[in-house]
């Protein structure tokens, strides 16, 4: 573990020449910033200098960013940019060769009842097909010392009530996403981390999801949401971390990104994103980490 943590102070992001930089990766690559102490004691997520290799493929190459409370932070980038790997690292599921990922200053594996600190959604909840959604939430609740009242509360919150007692094997992807959201909210956590929650959602579901994410942030929670589609993030996120080639190639507020985009020959936010991630897209033609699933 490096003794100097490269870290990003919330709100101190830079987007200089977002649309015009010839080497986006270099331009946006975060360097060692001062005042790490502030970030370490911050209630959100601080990811610093993650490096991870799958065989010969470098999945994470100095991934660093932070997620502030009270905001929705979008985590975007093409498939294989390292979004899911980063999220698994934050949750203590995958090990890294270098770097740290802290939640409220603590590594995930040091949390006693982690769902009280971080709620997460990976793999669309991944319920056992033979277990009902409600029972899926029930065992999770029991693992955190919570009881059934909390289960029924999050079922309501996630709009899962009509399907809660059916076997999860019959759920649509959208239903499984709602189940995953319910699971993430179970411990009423200050930090919420969602991997591709819009996948498989119908239009109503997408609107609902946006509203939910906004309200979670307005309650003061730190919300990290990954997506490989920029469009979904535009109306949802306050802040964007753009991942490419295993690191954060941009870390800026949505407003700053849009401002940068409008400076460069009328380019759209989508164009900014595409330019930023162009090299990462080429990178994707190798073995992508998403393919591991």
């Amino acid at each position: 573990m490096p003794c100097v943590r490269p870290c990003q102070i919330p709100g101190s992001s830079r987007v200089a020449a977002a649309a015009t930089g010839p080497e986006p990766g270099a331009a946006y690559n975060l360097r060692h910033e001062s005042n790490c102490e502030l970030a370490l004691s911050a209630p959100g997520i601080v990811v610093a200098g993650l490096r991870k290799r799958y065989g010969t493929v470098l999945a994470l190459d100095g991934m660093s960013f932070s997620v502030r409370p009270g905001q929705v932070t979008g985590f975007v980038g093409p498939n294989g940019a390292g979004k899911s790997t980063t999220m698994r690292v934050i949750l203590g599921l995958d090990a890294v060769e270098e770097g740290t990922a802290l939640i409220g200053g603590l590594p995930y594996r040091g949390l006693r009842h982690p769902l009280h600190h971080v709620g997460s959604l990976l793999d669309a909840a991944a319920p056992h097909p033979g277990r009902s959604g409600r029972n899926h939430l029930l065992w999770l609740a029991h693992s955190q010392g919570l009881d059934v009242r909390r289960v029924d509360r999050v079922i309501e919150q996630a709009g899962l009530a009509p399907a809660a007692r059916r076997k999860a094997g019959g759920y649509s992807l959208g239903m499984r996403q709602r189940l995953g959201i319910a699971a993430a909210l179970l411990g009423d956590p200050p930090v919420v981390l969602l991997d591709e929650p819009f996948n498989g959602m119908d239009p109503d579901g997408i609107v609902w999801m946006r509203g939910l994410l906004r309200s979670l942030a307005s309650e003061g929670r730190a919300v990290l949401v990954s997506s490989h589609l920029m469009g979904e993030m535009q109306h949802t996120a306050d802040h964007l971390v753009v991942a490419g080639r295993g690191r954060a190639i941009a870390d800026a507020s949505v407003a700053e990104l849009i401002a940068a985009a409008s400076r460069g020959n009328g380019a759209t936010l989508e164009d900014v994103y595409l330019r930023l991630t162009r090299e990462a897209v080429e990178f994707r033609t190798g073995t992508s980490t998403e393919d591991r699933k």
Binding site: G92, Y108, R109, P127, H128
Partner: peptide, 18 residues
Amino acid sequence: TTEYRSGLVRVTLAAGPG
């Protein structure tokens, strides 16, 4: 093994990091 097949093992280990 079904936990590995569905990815549920990640939910399990996120809920219980020990």
